[in-house]
Design a protein around this nucleic acid. Structure first.
Lengths: 193, 193, 193, 193
DNA sequence: AATGAATGAGCATTCATTCAT
DNA sequence: GATGAATGAATGCTCATTCAT
């Protein structure tokens, strides 16, 4: 029972993720989502009592997946630079593999649906990055600007790379572009020389 | 007549800009826009036959205003670095003064409304920046990565700064943050050392 | 213009009155009302922005018609008894002619839709009866019980007569029943003997 | 088993009675009733296969309780007048104690849910009153109008008194109002004197 | 017999767009 | 050209009822 319930929740979220990305929140009827998920219209509302709650839940799931992809293999790296490079590459590759989820995340962030709770909830999963930056600053390896700023600039630059690759079909140059853009970012962020 | 027509077009666009930003595209009925613009519901459709076309037009206007603000006083600067710094500062200050329009632009970019035509149309006004970057690369002053990428990373980093200042109410440290973030970006972008 | 608007308002109210009575408030879709009224679904909401407001408006109209029917020819009568008898007969005859409206009124009164405003608004039209009762008590012709009580007992007894006639198909004995029931009521209400 | 079945039937009826009165028929989901009754949604439908049947059953139960309250202590009284007076008082006092059930009864009567069968079924319990009236007429003590009419006028006047007391918070004058209103009614009903 | 998850028809309301005036 | 009333398709959500467990 609990099993079939989980399956349904997930089917709905996946359908929502797909459709929201393809068509936008407001242009995606709940009826279409339930259809795509293979459940009845009423069923959707048993699991997510409101379209808004469905949107928020979808966001949290997507952001968690994103955070997990980002941190993949991180423990193998030792230096600050290597870790950031790993994160940088992970993120771009994930974005190229799951452009829908990335788009969804962006769409969500500039929409009126974000609740503070949703956002806080989601940020917890990124603690490892925040801490990495803190450390870097503390050890004098990163410039000492507002740390939130570094975080955001990293993200935004990263997204810019992904978009560029996707828009221009440059997937074959991915490795090179990851490397090139990271160097650029790292020169910007790191202290000394 | 042509005059009153122009006035009406503009009134509608301004109303649309205001309301779209405050309420989002889908939560802004055309009836509300025409009301705010002081025209009849039917009149709006004489000038913009579709809500979608109105959204696109509004986007172009907003982006043009943005481009103009960005280039303000650019001719006073001579070196590449000075020019980029000027643009960097202009952009951040504009974003702080007109957060609504900035929001509108972002909302638009991650919405399903953008037509390729709209985007191309809008990019023309940014030619001066593209050319500046071309020049920089040609003269060996900027790293030789995909130029569009530099453009986008610049933009996204810039927006990150604005958002940070707005979100955290750091307007009093604006100058310092502009300078700090520019140095970071410039270290990243510029070649040598 | 104002003319067609009035016509539409009235068509909607009449359709509502008919359908509410036949099917009950909650079993009457607004779509059915607009159809019966010969207007589009959206049009109904231009005139009555909410189903609830439509119900309230319908109630007020029906109650006004009722009050008007009740007072018909009242000025021709001179004594208290004659006036009450006239009202009594008017009311029963109206109820027999417009059983739908009467049913509607009753349905409304025992539903959760009555607003105090609605009720007060509606009671104004019955001032003439209230005043008549006041006078009667003041002149010592009517028993001196709580006046609102007299009013209500009159009404309820009256309705009982109408219902009985309708239920048992006794329309041919109407005059006799009016007379008989009035005597009964009058013996109850009037003082002396 | 038959026992637990009875318990369940009763629990459901009681929950229904409570909720229907508080919220109206159409605003009371069957799911809420089963919850309040402490049974599963499906269970309710085993006992009352339709919401409509549940409503009708609830009505019969409530009306039976009402009839029982009405007749309380009736055997102690000997004359026609005393008996009617007892009934009159019983009814008003019951209405004041159980306004919810009274409301329910009224709500039901002016709703589209009454089936003829339901009504006939319910009326059996009032046989004692009908007979009393018959007798009174036969013995020449009551006016000889249609007997059903007398019955209904009695009821409706009675309800008017209850409502008045409840609405105006006149509970402290209950005895006096009972007496006053009965006199009024008795003068109306009884022959000659 | 009991449970409660699943179903899907049904409904109030909104809103882009049309068109008679 | 301008107006704004009219249109009716579209949508989020509810709830009586069914049925697999």
């Amino acid at each position: 029972m609990s099993d079939s319930a989980h399956e349904k929740r997930e089917a709905i979220i996946n359908a929502a993720l797909k459709l929201f990305t393809e068509r936008g929140f407001d242009n995606t009827p709940t009826a279409l989502i339930s259809q795509e998920a293979g459940v009845a219209t009423g069923t959707l509302f048993r699991y997510y009592p409101t379209k808004e709650e469905l949107i928020n839940s979808t966001y949290i799931i997507a952001k968690n997946r994103f955070a997990a992809a980002m941190a993949r293999g991180l423990e193998e790296e030792t230096t600050l630079e290597a870790r950031l490079r790993r994160i940088w590459g992970n993120t771009i590759r994930w974005g190229l593999e799951s452009p829908q989820e990335l788009l969804f995340l962006e769409q969500f962030l500039s929409s009126p649906y974000i609740t503070k709770i949703t956002e806080e909830e989601a940020m917890k999963k990124f603690a490892f990055l925040t801490e990495l930056i803190e450390e870097g600053i503390a050890e004098g390896k990163l410039r000492d600007i507002h740390r939130g700023l570094i975080f955001d600039m990293l993200f935004s630059a990263n997204r810019a790379v992904i978009k560029k690759i996707l828009t221009h079909g440059m997937q074959d140059q991915t490795d090179m572009l990851i490397e090139g853009s990271f160097e650029l970012v790292w020169s910007g962020l790191s202290k000394s020389q």
